[in-house]
Design a protein around this nucleic acid. Structure first.
Lengths: 178, 178
DNA sequence: TATTGTTATACTCTATAACTATA
DNA sequence: TATAGTTATAGAGTATAACAATA
């Protein structure tokens, strides 16, 4: 989503839940609530969720070159160029030359980038607490456990869904897709 | 969704999860898995998820006029026109004149529309089963229950508006505690 | 010739606004 | 004047393709 989110958010209706109150519906509501919260935090970073992903990778020195990073995050390499332009403009990451292969640009986080990332992570934890605020600590633990077990299995079945998409695509109306 | 989701064949880096294995990550993976399956089912309906929502409302005779339906679903009224054009073109819904107010168009589902909706619902149940396949029936029930409780609460934060507003509230910096 | 990164173009989706017809 | 619906225009976002530099 990059941009501060258009306003055309399509959500589920009131009494006419398309999926009734079944799993898909509840899952969607909870996910979108989390996604919205995450967006509020991550929206400040240029490129939104994807900027956050890039920043995370850069901060842990796992970013590598632009194209390898793009491939890993499922971002088009041409889009990666624009995203990095924006991040670099705000001094959150830097493109450094690779002595070994001068075609490559190595992506690294600046001190300012690390700082901003750290802040975002803290705030994301608060969002999480807010979402889980409706149930007991014990139930919250159960939920985490169940979701993690499902996620592990699903991830093994189809590694296509990269994690960022999780918090990340949250913001993208397109990705919400239902 | 909208677009059949790019080619994101992205392998999620195991140890580098931006959010670790916390809630947001697991939630995102599970949601995305469901969304992907749902997309396969609903993608056949013109307008995708929104077409499905419209069809659902129309089939239960709760659609009403175009603009009231649009408002309820959080869809722009101009977009509603296009969506209905597509749905009508495939004989899934009809626009019927309202004798009381000739400005209004009452949206109703055609037999073909009801049939297609019924098929989609059946298939969505299969998707759900697939997602929950990794855990026991008892755990699945627990998960459903917990998610429903969270969803109800999140939804209840703003009973007047649609889910969009509810989620937005969760996203507000104040709610997050900033 | 293949690959990294950049730039230019076209396409999709959506919102804004202007328009018609009813009220 | 206000509202329901339609149509036209413009914008954001993204993918496709053409390009430059390096291998």
């Amino acid at each position: 989503m990059a941009a501060p989110e258009p306003h055309g958010d399509t959500r589920a209706p009131e009494g006419t839940s398309p999926l009734g109150d079944d799993l898909g519906f509840a899952l969607g509501v909870v996910f979108r609530a989390y996604a919205k919260g995450a967006q509020a935090v991550i929206g400040k970073i240029p490129g939104g969720p994807r900027g956050y992903q890039i920043l995370t990778a850069a901060a842990s020195d796992e970013a590598g070159s632009q194209s390898s990073l793009a491939q890993r995050l499922g971002i088009d390499r041409t889009v990666m160029t624009y995203l990095l332009d924006d991040l670099e403009r705000q001094d959150l990451v830097r493109r450094e030359p690779d002595p070994a292969d001068r075609r490559n640009r190595h992506i690294v986080a600046t001190p300012r980038g690390r700082e901003q990332l750290c802040d975002a992570e803290k705030q994301l934890r608060l969002v999480e607490d807010h979402i889980l605020g409706g149930i007991s600590a014990e139930d919250a633990g159960t939920l985490r456990d169940l979701l993690r077990r499902l996620a592990e299995r699903l991830h093994g079945l189809d590694p296509t869904g990269n994690l960022c998409s999780a918090a990340a695509e949250a913001a993208s109306p397109a990705a919400i897709g239902l």
